[in-house]
Design a protein around this nucleic acid. Structure first.
Length: 560
RNA sequence: GCGCCCGUAGCUCAGUUGGACAGAGCGGCGGCCUUCUAAGCCGCGGGUCACAGGUUCGAAUCCUGUCGGGCGCGCCA
């Protein structure tokens, strides 16, 4: 790639000028007058070398071997930017590169050799998944995909909190519903679960195990109900996620930690390392020595563990399983928990092992008012209700198109709009348009190729702009992976789709038929088909990276 | 009280390892349909980047403070 050669040359020149190692930043200026590629290298070096930036820019520009990097010109502008113009041929040759890479276009090996565990959703098995879980699911899956695209070995994991107080409340709540179902007076315990879904479950469990339950002693009955509820609700969550298009490589349950003796083992290790102490009958961990506000309790004075200990044991286990790095996608209500978790891992000698991505809350707006309640689930809207109404692609995209760490408004009216106002359809439609051209032209989408001589026909400004845009894709993926930010990809795809549409519509028979992809002239036609395919490759790869479909044709559902 | 996130166009949001006039989508206004699918396209208007200081050749971006919104601060999970 021409830009990579340029980058290398600039880095070398920086060395020659005595500036040492510099991360050369190349960007595509918004203003076309500023060329195809621009670098602020002179500005960066000016500071370091205490020299006039423009003068330095001239000096750098003079040292560049234009021909060797496929450049037409380099000029100094503004405070000291160096603006480069690509030679036409090098731009056109990018198309060939994209077609050759095809499904691999956008992939890189930046993260090769790194094993990363991405843990997300990890909802308690106490009820249906709600929209915030959906956002976490989309984001976790998107982050995992970005890491895969940059060469990391990624595993997706769901942590099941199937032991502990909340599960006891679940069992008690189900028992109350079951008794109500049998005509007995019973009420949901404090801190229990009030949603209608437990009424449904009570009916099912009664049909399933009713007679048996009636004969059991209360202890055994509650255990039976607990296991039943956890299993059923887990299955329901799995089904929701599967239909949402999110798949996990592994599930790790809290009860496994107990069974494998990892809690006592972890506690032992912490003690051996001199990290714990007893005070007021409880066992404390010295997290304050590792960046936390204060020390935290591991074992309560009544002898039971806090939630903290299993979490430490779990994360310690992640490292023991051979992962170099762990990324957790957590809800905003857990952000205060991050420092102590990191502190605990630092105490175990894993200071940079964990990164936590916080997912903020989602508000659903319909007709200008906030939709809050679900009949079945009680005080929240379920993920399933959402994606059954909008469709999977739309729901996923809407969750992904915003930064995860800020609160978002989910505009249901826009989500249900099937025109190109809806950003999802705008991108998908741009892809479908390219596919429709191939159908019309009678060529296989994946078979299109063009010679360099033919590609030389791509001289129109819209074509040049589009090619430049397509060449940005790999960099966008890398940047998005680095920032764990799928929305960067969404922004890019929307922008690309806009440019695709401009190009496509410019060739409308009523506007300028000479610009149609399926032009009369065979060479031009071949070149434009190749560009159309390169476009399709980028849009498809981007959509699939985000876990969305890249449709061959768009079908509108008739509005009811 | 302390900590974290946030405050950018009428609305929803990008841009925040400092850089060229602050961007997109939606909404608004004005054009354009016997279509390589108008589910659209082209153009126009719209902002004291919450506020006040500071650092810098240069600040939406960094620092300090103020105001406003959200969340978290348990021997809960």
């Amino acid at each position: 790639m021409a830009t990579e050669q340029l980058r290398a040359q600039l880095a070398a020149i920086a060395h020659e000028l005595g500036a040492g190692d510099v991360a050369v930043v190349l960007e595509t200026p918004r203003n076309p007058e500023h060329g195809d590629v621009a670098s602020n290298l002179a500005l960066v070096l000016a500071k370091r070398l205490r020299r006039n930036p423009r003068q330095l820019g001239e000096e750098i520009a003079a040292r560049i071997d234009l021909a060797a990097t496929g450049l037409e010109s380099a000029e100094i502008a503004g405070p000291g930017f160096i603006n480069f113009r690509l030679a036409g041929a090098s731009l056109q040759s990018q198309v060939t590169g994209i077609l050759a890479a095809d499904r691999g276009y956008g992939r890189s090996q930046t993260g090769a050799g790194r094993r990363v565990l991405v843990e997300f959703v990890s909802a308690n098995p106490t009820g249906p998944l709600h929209v915030a879980h959906g956002r976490g699911a989309a984001l976790g899956d998107g982050i995992a995909a970005l890491l895969e695209w940059t060469g990391h070995a990624v595993a997706r994991e769901f942590y099941v909190n199937d032991a502990g107080v909340q599960i006891d409340r679940l069992a008690e709540s189900l028992e109350a519903r079951w008794r109500q179902q049998r005509g007995e007076a019973a009420s949901i315990p404090e801190g229990g679960y009030h949603g209608d879904y437990l009424i449904d479950l009570a009916r099912v469990v009664d049909a399933d195990l009713g007679p048996e339950l009636a004969t059991l002693a209360s202890e055994a009955r509650r255990r039976t109900l607990r296991d039943y509820a956890v299993e059923r609700l887990r299955q329901e969550q799995d089904a929701d996620l599967r239909e949402f298009g999110v798949h996990f490589d592994s599930y790790f349950s809290e009860s496994e930690l107990y069974a494998a003796g990892l809690l006592t083992e972890t506690r032992q290790e912490l003690r051996t390392r001199g990290l714990t102490y007893e005070q007021e009958g409880a066992v404390w961990l010295r997290t304050a020595a590792f960046g936390d506000d204060k020390d935290r309790v591991l074992v309560k004075s009544d002898g039971t563990f806090t939630y903290f200990l299993p979490d430490i044991a779990y994360h310690r286990d992640k490292a023991r399983r051979g992962f170099d790095h762990a990324i957790n996608v957590w809800g905003a209500d857990h952000h205060g928990y991050v420092p102590r978790m990191k502190a605990a891992l630092a105490a175990l000698g894993l200071p940079d092992f964990l990164d936590v991505e916080i997912v903020q809350m989602v508000r659903i707006m319909r007709g200008g008012v906030e939709a809050k309640f679900s009949k079945r689930a009680g005080d929240f809207v379920t993920l399933r209700e959402l994606f059954e109404e909008t469709g999977r692609d739309v729901a996923r995209y809407f969750f992904l198109m915003r930064r995860g760490d800020t609160q978002m408004l989910f505009d249901l009216d826009l989500a249900l709009d099937q025109s190109e106002k809806n950003p999802v359809y705008k991108v998908q439609y741009a892809h479908a348009r390219m596919m429709s051209i191939f159908r019309k032209g009678g060529v296989g989408a994946d078979a299109v190729v063009a010679t360099a001589a033919e590609l030389a026909r791509l001289t129109h400004e819209l074509e040049r702009d589009l090619i430049k845009q397509l060449t940005l894709f790999p960099g966008v993926v890398e940047r998005a992976a680095e920032a764990r930010a799928p929305h960067v990809v969404c922004d890019y795809l929307e922008q690309t789709a806009g440019m695709v549409n401009s190009w496509y519509h410019a060739g409308n028979p009523n506007r300028n038929p000479a610009l149609a992809v399926l032009a009369q002239d065979p060479a031009t036609r071949s070149a434009r088909l190749a560009l159309a395919r390169a476009t399709r490759v980028v849009l498809r790869n981007g959509l699939e990276l985000l876990g969305l479909s890249a449709p061959e044709r768009m079908q509108r559902e008739d509005s009811e």
